[in-house]
């Protein structure tokens, strides 16, 4: 896959009028959104704006009440999450969801289920296909893990995931998502809980992932990260898009400031600027 930044690129991921309510609460409200191939798009917004729900809708964990979600022009609305992953969407979770009692390598190998075909009987009888696939996904897992330098390689491969530090768990989750070889990677607050040095590193890492040809949709609260990585920023509030564009456009948008600080706060902020 190669990234092309022409203006005529077709959207890789597209949401058309997607709506989702929980009871009476409309969490996502007629949201239109698109991500082009090779782009890094950031989603920002105050807590409860519907960012994580958006991710859950895209990955099929929730089914939208209305609207349509398209991947590469094909509808993926209402498909089971594991099938959506096979179509090429991978994600990480805001509050880490690693398989803590499995080893680091197994965590990544487990994500290869959809990319392997050997039946359970082939595995028991050690038939050629099972052995070949096993070798392949082991190599792929190790290759993905070495993306993070020495941190997740060597002796780490056979360590249980719970023995990892917080930052390394985040890295492992990203490695696991990348190993499914997605067309688009959804990162839910990759810098949450990281110290400044690690945050800086994550920013560089996301750039590196993009150079590898991934398209990325990221939720992030750290504005330095958002500024550092985004081609485009989308601001959500109460499930609706309130601003879209470059980081500077969105960051200075009156509505965004208002959503974060309230009307009074926005006025005060404006007064301070003058």
């Amino acid at each position: 896959m190669s990234s092309s930044d022409g203006p005529d690129t077709k959207p890789l991921l597209e949401l058309r009028g997607v709506t989702k309510s929980f009871g009476g609460l409309r969490v996502i409200d007629h949201l239109d959104l698109h991500v082009d191939e090779g782009e890094i798009v950031s989603v920002i917004g105050p807590n409860g704006a519907g960012k994580t729900t958006l991710f859950n809708l895209i990955t099929g964990v929730y089914t939208p009440d209305a609207g349509e979600i398209l991947l590469g022009g094909e509808s993926i609305t209402g498909i089971a999450p594991h099938k959506i992953t096979n179509r090429g969407i991978a994600r990480t979770f805001q509050n880490l969801r690693l398989f803590l009692n499995m080893t680091v390598r197994e965590n990544v190998m487990a994500s290869q289920y959809g990319r392997t075909r050997a039946t359970v009987f082939e595995s028991i009888l050690l038939l050629p296909r099972a052995r070949r696939e096993e070798k392949e996904i082991k190599a792929r897992a190790e290759e993905r893990l070495s993306f993070f330098g020495q941190r997740l390689t060597g002796y780490r491969w056979d360590q249980p995931a719970y023995s990892l530090s917080y930052a390394n768990r985040r890295r492992l989750e990203i490695a696991r998502a990348m190993a499914t070889q997605p067309q688009i990677l959804l990162l839910d607050e990759p810098a949450a809980g990281m110290n400044p040095a690690e945050t800086h590193e994550i920013t560089e890492l996301i750039g590196e992932i993009r150079r590898d040809g991934y398209t990325i949709l990221v939720i992030e609260h750290d504005m330095h990260v958002v500024e550092g990585i985004s081609d485009r920023v989308i601001a959500l509030d109460h499930g609706a898009k309130i601003a879209e564009g470059s980081f500077d456009t969105v960051a200075t948008s009156e509505q965004v400031v208002e959503a974060y600080l309230g009307i009074k706060g926005a006025k005060e902020a404006a007064a301070e600027d003058e």
Binding site: T59, V61, A80, P81, H82, T85, N86, A90, R91, F93, R97, L98, F99, L100, N101, M102, E106, M109, A110, S111, Q112, Y113, G114, R115, T116, A118, V120, S123, I124, A130, E133, E134, I137, R176, A177, T180
Partner: peptide, 25 residues
């Protein structure tokens, strides 16, 4: 130690994460 066993253990650990990682839970 096959893909099936790993998938079982993965869904024991976290069914949602397993499902999102292409495992038909």
């Amino acid at each position: 130690h096959s893909r099936t066993g790993r998938a079982w253990r993965a869904l024991r650990e976290d069914p949602l994460a397993a499902e999102v990682l292409s495992i038909p839970v």
